[in-house]
Design a binder for these strands. Structure first.
Lengths: 191, 191
DNA sequence: ACGGTACTAATGAACGTTCATTAGTGCTCC
DNA sequence: GGAGCACTAATGAACGTTCATTAGTACCGT
């Protein structure tokens, strides 16, 4: 990291995010984060109050962004099939564009202190509930055919995770193409 | 843990597995593992050489079991649709029956030392390749219809992960029922 | 039946290292 | 001259691990 400009809170959070994604929260030290910024560990405390605060900031920002993207993707869409397609595409696009943030959200909930965990889990559950509602509504109206809408919802949500494990921005498919593929998969899962 | 019987290597590995799944490798201390067994930390070294060795033992055992289950599930099955269904069911059943082991395999590859990581990743890749081959063969023979067999393979493999995040043995569906649902999902994904 | 021996498994103490964090100090730019 | 930001130095706590030692148990030849 460039040392010509002073480190900012945002730079600390971003550097930490990449490291937490690669090595985990407990596998990353404040010294590691500082080194990524070309600075000594105690200097980080000029920008953040604690290591735990960094973790919470990463996850809260990521959840807010994902929720906003979902709402935007669904705005004004009436057809339930189109809703599921767009929700899935929004989800996968978020995974592909912010893989580090998403990885941290997926793996470090357990490293949050109790109060922070409650806040993040609530947002995550809200996201999952939104997708489940779509599938349940589709089942009620007969557009979808699944014996187990809840299980299908979990499957669709999880499916997208696979994308970020192999996707490379320089690869053969653009992110929007990959997202549309997963949108198709989601519609197939619900029949 | 019962202190009437002495701790064995297997007991150490099992206790560590649960803790690693809950708190992560770096989030679990040797003292934590020892306490779960009703013993002091140094006593663990009568049974294992190092903390890292415990992690490797957990993951290697889990991978071997999963690979064996896959081979058994596919033995003698010719039809490619039936192959995919059985592979998925085998995968999901493994997830549901050994959630802690699977969680460790999914999240702690990064905590393995280089040599150990190579060994585990090779087995994981072998598993994934087996499933991908089935889907690719199905596409070639026209039984499946997917533009992107590789992506579909990743989606199917990942999908199963969701099962263990909500499944409870005491819940309303038996594990075999859940597994068969995911088998159905997999077939739908490939068309 | 008995003493000797080897083995297993546990212990407290201590090792050196790393951890997150605090205190205090100085430079630099407005 | 004051705010912002980095520094060095130092803190207590926790980490994985090693060590010498002890208690209990099982097998052995006699």
């Amino acid at each position: 990291m460039d040392r010509s400009t002073p480190a900012s809170r945002g730079a600390v959070v971003d550097a930490a995010c990449q490291l937490f994604a690669d090595r985990g929260y407990h596998g990353t030290s404040m010294k590691d984060i500082a080194e990524a910024l070309g600075v000594r560990a105690p200097s980080l405390y000029n920008h953040v109050a604690s290591k735990q605060e960094i973790l919470f900031a990463i996850m809260d920002k990521a959840m807010e962004r994902a929720l906003a993207a979902l709402e935007e993707a669904l705005a004004g869409v009436e057809d339930v099939s189109e809703q599921l397609r767009r929700a899935t595409e929004s989800l996968v696009l978020d995974f592909l564009r912010f893989p580090a943030e998403v990885t941290v959200c997926n793996t470090e909930v357990r490293s949050l202190e109790a109060a922070n965990r409650l806040a993040i889990v609530a947002k995550r559950d809200h996201y999952a509930a939104r997708v489940r509602q779509i599938i349940e509504q589709g089942c009620r109206s007969g557009r979808f055919s699944t014996r187990t809408p809840q299980i299908a919802a979990f499957a669709v949500l999880e499916m997208g995770n696979s994308a970020k494990s192999w996707f490379r921005p320089s690869g053969r498919y653009p992110d929007t193409y990959v997202a549309s593929e997963y949108g198709e998969f989601a519609l197939r899962v619900v029949g």
